[in-house]
Design a protein around this nucleic acid. Sequence first.
RNA 1: GGUCCCAUCGUCUAGCCUGGUCUAGGACGCCGCCCUCUCACGGCGGAAACAGGGGUUCGAAUCCCCUUGGGACUACCA
Length: 503
Amino acid sequence: MTNPANASQPVRVRFAPSPTGFLHVGGARTALFNWLYAKKTGGTFILRIEDTDEARSTDASTDQILESMKWLGLDWDEGPFFQSQRWDIYEEHLKKLHEGGWIYPAFETAEELEAMRKAAMDAKENPIYNRAALKLSPEEVQAKIAAGESYVWRFKCPAGKITVPETLMTGGSAGNVVDSEELGDFVVTRATTGGGFGKPLYNLVCAVDDALMGITNVIRGVEHLSNAPRQMLLMQAWGYDVPSFTHLPLIMKNGKKMSKRDGDADKLFPVSVSARRDLGYLPEATVNFIALLGWSMDRENDLLTREDLIANFSLDGLSKANANFDEDKYLYINGWYIRNMPQAEIAERVKPFLEKEGLVAPERGNAWLANIIELERERCKLLSEFPEALRYFFIAPATYEEKGVKKLFEKDGVTELLDRTAAILAETHPFDAEHLEGALRAVAEEKGVGFGKVAQPIRLAVTGRMASPGLFEVLIALGKDECLARIRTAISHIQSSEGVPVA
RNA sequence: GGUCCCAUCGUCUAGCCUGGUCUAGGACGCCGCCCUCUCACGGCGGAAACAGGGGUUCGAAUCCCCUUGGGACUACCA
């Protein structure tokens, strides 16, 4: 086996997305693992944009990928490099391949190839190219080119078994052993005419760049496993060192590979990083969660900081089995970060989500805002849940939870209770937790009921809900006047002939 | 169809390479209890897995083979 280039050199890894859509969580994990490996080893993380498919690549996509990487905190040391700006380099390499007799033109049309493939499959054979073009004499080739026939360049795979320096998907061997004849003479350029080379294709540009950029470890999704031997053959044809390869297991969703083709159709569970961000997932939670897809730090801990990840990441700790994208766990981890973030920090992050829903109260001030966010944070697992959770602090309830209305407002004596409580509240000075508790306990005692019997109707009257943070905190945040107004509104609803409006 | 990869609780996984310490550990989810003005948070406890079959061995989740299951690739995309 070829000596991997990473024997003792400093680590150089890369993330090489194609800008044909957004960065999805699978790509993010690939980027993260590369980034982590670089950080852990003190190596270099390179970003390369694989935009050789001019028909499908867009600048908007590149922008979105870069933005998502930044949001995740995956900063790169070199790049971004764009393959579309490196045509000359690939042309040079094509020339070398040609001079070395490694490539040859093949004239079959796509339709012919498709028919051959189908025939091979029907005959239960491996559908690889039959090398018909290789049997053409130089004169025949010249004649076809002169006649303006379209052709592609194919790489002539040498016979024999080759061992790709793969670290993970080895099938129990020292590397990934493949019979190069089963690879087929793969295509390295797009179709062209007139004797030139045509635009280079993925396997070629990837091999050139990985070699030229001095990549020591190619870490990418397992869907590229079968490309590794081809890229290795190419690198060897040029006389370059071959990096070591680590092919990551797939991230599955609903039993199949999670792909950007799945899109963000599912509004609750989109696959793009940017849509997750808009839903209120945190970058630290996202990084933590995707790191756990195919890797684990130890047998105990799942809540990992970026520092934990860097300090403990290792290619040896990688799992080979495909990982299922567990939404529940993602949500749990996100909630954990929301709960454990510094107070000022969480307030800053929630603010834009509130503003987007028009929930602003400049007259209350920033301290008040931070306070109410603090009150609800343990009930929210996504930043986008805050607007609904905090709505009653900004707007008096127009409706009341139906279950609560039945259970609390339709009970005998509730108006008296509410009325009495309002009266006591009105006399409570100062309006703080200590005095509030004294006041409400006094009402409970006076009525001969448990404390909850007093607290619950008040909560429903003031928030419209059955559940909320501690009642005193809510009342204080709202202020005495607002509380009294809401209680009176509730009473009038209960007494009105139309009944209480329910949600 | 061909080639290749993979296989521990429902899910993410530890353990597997270097067989015995595994009556298989943790986490999410689920259930129960506690805390409690509700919800949530938190605490405690519970149910829950080595895909099946053959070997090798004194001994296998760990090594080998087969079966089954899942997946990827099979483009003049990346």
